[in-house]
């Protein structure tokens, strides 16, 4: 098992599919990336491109119809052992979840059981991982609630419906780091809240990360949040990572037509009134994906070669890998824009 020193999580060649009536849906195909200690990785892309599926796959909580077809997910434990998450037993997997890798789901409104008090969910979580000292757990949880700027006592004893959406999101965030995990996956953590709450959540997240040093996998439609939070950004299209690189590289020198399209679809305050360019068409059918590059039917840079063979993921600049035959033209096109 090859894995570099600082790598916490190494996803290698993972494919995930769902069984549907019409056939097999290739939701994630041959995805690879490394997540380093303290790194923040943002996954961007349209709805249905496989971001959430990938993350559910990492903690092995796919819906019943979902299956991980191939690949390895290597995880480095605190004592330096490397384990394949896909090879863990049911019991080991249960212990892995939340204690090693926590996941804060999108729409935290429904993430908490409406008939159980927050404190009981906290105790439940701790007890599932063998921590039975209630006084200690309570103390730690109250401290974390204070850090995410919640009124600790009130929130601890509240039912979920007594809290606002932003508060619930922060409850989940604090609960997510209760067991001091090495990896925190955030699935659209700011989608359902207003812009001010969004700010608070991002600040709180940054503070927690600085204090605790966990790595983050961050799913977002919102490119500005990705730009702000991430060290590394990966663009996903039709279940594949089509471009991955350091955040400034990817946002200022995009080399994949799809990343460029996403960037051009965002309004820019600095440039003033300017026509927004959206990407024509919609994501492809994942049961029978188009041949060659899956993006070719929507791509303005398409050539004959793109229709025939799928482009491989190639490192074109340090740490910047892209799967596009026409990356030079895309790069040249993107420069005058900025």
């Amino acid at each position: 098992m090859s894995i570099s020193d600082s790598t916490i999580l190494s996803v290698q060649d993972v494919s995930i599919s769902y069984l549907a009536h019409r056939g097999k849906v290739r939701a994630v195909s041959r995805v690879s990336f490394d997540l380093h200690q303290g790194e923040s990785l943002a996954l961007i892309g349209e709805s249905g491109c496989g971001k959430s599926t990938l993350n559910l796959g990492i903690i092995r909580l796919l819906p019943k119809t979902g299956r991980i077809d191939q690949g390895k997910i290597l995880y480095t434990t605190r004592d330096g052992r490397v384990v394949d998450v896909l090879g863990l037993s049911e019991r080991e997997m249960r212990e892995f979840r939340w204690a090693e890798c926590a996941m804060v789901f999108q729409a935290a409104l429904n993430s908490l059981n409406p008939v159980i008090r927050v404190r009981d969910m906290v105790y439940d979580t701790a007890q599932a991982h063998g921590r039975h000292d209630r006084v200690q757990i309570r103390k730690r949880m109250l401290e974390l609630f204070r850090r995410v700027r919640l009124d600790p006592e009130r929130v601890f004893n509240a039912y979920p419906h007594e809290l606002s959406g932003g508060m619930r999101q922060r409850v989940l965030l604090a609960l997510g780091v209760l067991l001091n995990p090495q990896v925190v996956i955030l699935d659209e953590p700011t989608t359902a809240v207003d812009i001010l709450t969004q700010r608070t959540i991002l600040e709180v997240l940054r503070e927690l990360r600085a204090a605790m040093g966990f790595s983050i996998i961050f799913i977002s439609h919102d490119l500005s949040i990705a730009a702000e939070m991430a060290d590394t950004v990966a663009t996903m299209y039709a279940g594949e990572i089509v471009e991955i690189g350091p955040v400034e590289e990817l946002f200022y020198r995009p080399r994949h037509a799809y990343t460029l399209g996403l960037l051009e679809a965002v309004p820019k305050l600095s440039v003033g009134a300017q026509e927004l360019v959206s990407i024509p068409g919609s994501p492809p059918d994942l049961i029978e994906p188009p041949p060659g590059c899956k993006f070719h039917p929507r791509c303005p840079f398409v050539t004959e070669r793109c229709r025939r063979e799928p482009p491989p993921l190639v490192e074109e600049a340090p740490g910047h890998r892209v799967a596009c035959f026409e990356s030079a033209r895309v790069l040249a096109h993107s420069q005058p824009v900025r």
């Binding site: 903690i59 909580l61 249960r94 212990e95 892995f96 979840r97 939340w98 204690a99 926590a102 996941m103 789901f105 729409a107 429904n110 993430s111 908490l112 059981n113 409406p114 159980i116 969910m121 439940d124 979580t125 599932a128 991982h129 989940l172 609960l175």
Partner: peptide, 22 residues
């Protein structure tokens, strides 16, 4: 199908606990 059931599993609760309490 509720989100909080998935979240309870993601929190590492035992199958039995999820089954009864959630």
């Amino acid at each position: 199908g509720e989100e909080y059931v998935t979240v309870a599993q993601a929190r590492g609760l035992s199958q039995w606990r999820v089954l009864t309490a959630y």
